[in-house]
Simulated scan of single mutants.
Amino acid sequence: MTSAPPVAAAASERSTPAEVGGSRARRAGSGLGPGSPRRRGRSSNGLRRLEPYAFISPTAILMIVLMLVPIGMVIGYSFMNNVITNHNPKFVGLDNYVDVLTDERFHTALGNTLIFTLTSVGAHLVLGLVFAMLLNTPLLSNASKAVFRTIYFLPWLFTVAIVAVLWRLLLNPNGVINYVLVTLGLSDNGVEFLADPSLALAAVTFINIWAGYPFFMISLLAGLQGIPRDLYEAATVDGASRWQQFWNVTIPQLRPIIISMCLLDLIWTSQQFALIWMTTGGGPINVTEMLSTFTYKLAFSRYEFSMASTSAVIVLLLSMILAVFYVRHQRARD
């Protein structure tokens, strides 16, 4: 057999314009073209999924750089012998934790922190609730409530540095409080509130109570104003007294707010540093030494950075326990 001429074969392999247009239309209809709507939809969906990560990426990067990396470094330092001052630190395992947990100064700091924290939180709650109920009473006019709210809220407006300097001046042997005590004949030469070992812890606790109760007061006042009046009217119809209404209506309605604020205040107060450092510095004779000042002195007074890292990790673990309770309570509340 003879083969077809080359020109005829090429002509037979060519497609007519109608056939070419039909094939292009079929490809476009099937979504197989490079600029097809299906492909554009897939790419836009992929970009849309990445948008949330793009928005949170700056914050995530800052948290990683400023929080996770330092925390990881501190945890690593806690398992080494003295770092920074030692050019070749070695892994010592849990030796630093044993040394810190058996240190008498750590026990003193832990006990002082517990007393300082629990007393402050309890007083914050009681004073905040009392002042909130006073500001919520219908016996006062709106103008009087505004004035008292401003006065009661003033301590919360001051920074820790201002609070510390203010009370150091007031409690100074030549300060206003000692002047009043001497004038009234209650003291001969004044009282060293911040230098007397028997009074220093009570003095700094009082200062912290004074500076922190407005947070509870404002939050509880908002909670009181959100309680429906129908509950009190129903309790009055049932013959409940004022105390019974407070205990069976007010407290149950405020319980979620009270628990949340107490957990937050426990975390904040247990880590209080600036107020203690600027008033007593942990003295005299370690009677106001807290876990925060104990850790600071280990690092920047004794230059034992590994021991300071170990103490910081212990404080972190204690704070995380409180944080877990707070998160669980918030989830249960939601």
Rank of each mutant, 00 (worst) to 15 (best):
D188I: 10
L94N: 07
N45K: 13
R49V: 11
N88A: 14
I115Q: 02
T150M: 15
R255D: 01
A164K: 06
A9F: 09
F294M: 11
V100A: 09
V165N: 09
A274I: 03
N82Y: 02
S120E: 13
L166Y: 14
V65C: 04
I75V: 11
P5A: 12
T102M: 12
N172P: 00
Y97R: 13
L139F: 07
V249T: 11
K145R: 10
A332F: 06
S44T: 10
I207Y: 06
I285W: 04
T59P: 01
L298G: 01
A332W: 08
L110S: 04
A299F: 02
W156F: 03
Y232G: 02
D103S: 12
R24F: 08
P256M: 06
G122M: 05
G212K: 06
I209M: 01
N86T: 14
S43M: 12
R229H: 11
N189A: 15
L171H: 07
A132S: 11
G282R: 04
R40P: 00
A8I: 11
D196N: 13
G35T: 09
I71F: 14
I115Y: 07
F131H: 05
M133F: 02
S12Q: 11
A299T: 05
S30C: 04
M80F: 07
T205P: 01
A195E: 15
T2E: 11
A195I: 12
Q225M: 04
Y179H: 15
A308W: 12
V324D: 08
Q245K: 09
I177C: 01
T102K: 13
D99K: 15
I56P: 00
S198H: 14
F148C: 04
R38A: 00
V160Y: 10
I314N: 02
Y77N: 13
T102S: 15
E289L: 15
S311M: 01
I84C: 03
T288M: 10
T150W: 14
G29L: 13
W247E: 12
P252T: 03
P197W: 08
L254A: 05
L316D: 06
N96H: 02
L94E: 06
A109V: 04
K297N: 11
S219N: 03
V74C: 09
V237C: 00
L140A: 07
R149C: 09
V315Y: 08
I258A: 04
S3C: 05
V324Y: 13
G35P: 00
P214E: 06
D265S: 14
K90I: 09
S44Y: 04
E233W: 05
A146C: 02
T16M: 00
A203T: 15
V327T: 07
D196I: 01
R14F: 05
D334L: 12
L318V: 14
K297Y: 07
T85F: 07
T159G: 15
P138A: 04
A274D: 13
R333L: 10
L224D: 00
S198T: 15
T150E: 11
A308K: 10
L139D: 03
R48A: 15
V7A: 11
T113A: 04
